[in-house]
Write a protein that binds this DNA or RNA. Sequence first.
DNA 1: TCCAGCATGTAACGAGTTACATGATTCG
DNA 2: CGAATCATGTAACTCGTTACATGCTGGA
Lengths: 183, 183
Amino acid sequence: MAQKNKLQFVILGLLNQQPLTGYDLTKAFDHEIGEFWQAQHSQVYPQLKRLEEQGYITHEITISGEKLEKKLYHITTTGQAILTTWITAGTPELTATKDEFILKLYFIRTSRDPRLPEMLSEQLQLHSEKLQHLQARLTTVFPTKKSQTENFGHYLILQHALGRENYYVTWLQETLAALPHKA
Amino acid sequence: MAQKNKLQFVILGLLNQQPLTGYDLTKAFDHEIGEFWQAQHSQVYPQLKRLEEQGYITHEITISGEKLEKKLYHITTTGQAILTTWITAGTPELTATKDEFILKLYFIRTSRDPRLPEMLSEQLQLHSEKLQHLQARLTTVFPTKKSQTENFGHYLILQHALGRENYYVTWLQETLAALPHKA
DNA sequence: TCCAGCATGTAACGAGTTACATGATTCG
DNA sequence: CGAATCATGTAACTCGTTACATGCTGGA
C-alpha cells in the first residue's frame, strides 16, 4: 500500500469544477492551489493516465493552431462518486510535519548557543514573507464578503494558513526577544 | 538528487548525545522525538550502514545474554563535523504541508454544506487530543524552569508545537461557531 | 526569426511505508 | 514455557523530485 494516493483526489476535485488539460493542472499546482498542494507535471501526466484507465476521467483531443494536440480531461460520474466518497469519509490521520528548522532546533542545547539568534532571525524573515504573501493572496482572491461565500472552503484554507503563519511569526519574535542578552 | 536526506542528520544528532543501537534509534522515533520526526526501523538500519560506509559513525558489537549481538553505534569526529556544518548552515526552505483535511476543505463550496459541521468537529476532536498530549509531554519532560534551560531546543520545539495546536483548535472552534445556523 | 511559454511525456533516483523474515532474551 | 519485547535485517512498493526529451504556438 505504501502511501495514500491523495493526488488522484486533487485532480478529480479540480476536474469536477471544469475540464482541464494536464498542463492546466500543473499550472494550478504552481499557482492557485500551490498554497496547500504541489505536484510536478511528471506526476500529473501518469496519474491522469491511471485515472482514465480506472474510468474516473475521460479525455477529448482539441487542436490548437495547426496541429498541437491538447488532451482535455473530464470527470465521469464514477469519478464524481469516488470524489464524494472521499470527501464525505472521515479524515482521522493528522499529518506529521517534518520541518528541517525544527529538527535543527532540537540539537541546540542551551539558550546561549550563539547560532540561535541567526537561526531564529532567518526563519522570522522567511515566515514574515510567507505571511505577507498569504495576506496579499487573501485580499486578491477574496476581495469582498460575497466572494468569501462562494468557494467557502478555499477562503477558510487561506484564512487558516494566514493565522498559522501569524502564530509562527509571533512565536519567533517572542522567542528571539526572550533570549538572554549578550554580556 | 530527488530529496534531501535529513534522516542522516537526525541519527548523527542523536548519536552525538550518546551511543545507541539501531533499535534504540527506532524507539526514539516512536517516543522521545516522535513529536517532530518519525522513521521505521527499515529506514534506520540501511541508513546506519551508509553512514558507517561514509565514515561518519562506527559500531562496536556488544553481547546481551548468551549470544545476542547488539551493534552500538558511535559518532566519529568526521560525523560531528558534518552535523555541525548542517546545523550552522541556513535553512531557507519552508516545509510545505499536505494536510488531507485542508485538501478536502478546498472542495467544499458553500458555508451551508451539510458535511462541514461533522468535518470540523472531527478535526476539533483530533487536534484537542493532540493538544492535550503535547501539554502532558511538556510538563513531564520539562517539569521545572531549570530543566527547560537544559535541552533548550527541545523545550522550544514542544512549546512551539503546543502553540500551533492551540491555534488550530481555536480556529476550528471559531469556524464552527461562525457557521450559519440550520433553519 | 527567435524566444518564452504551451503541451506532453519518460527516466532515474531517493524517501518513506508496509510486509516479510529470523532469532534471542526476559519475565511472569 | 509462552508471550512480549529486544534486535537486525531485506523486499516490494508508492510518492515525489530532478532531469531528460521532444515538438508546437504566438507575439515582439
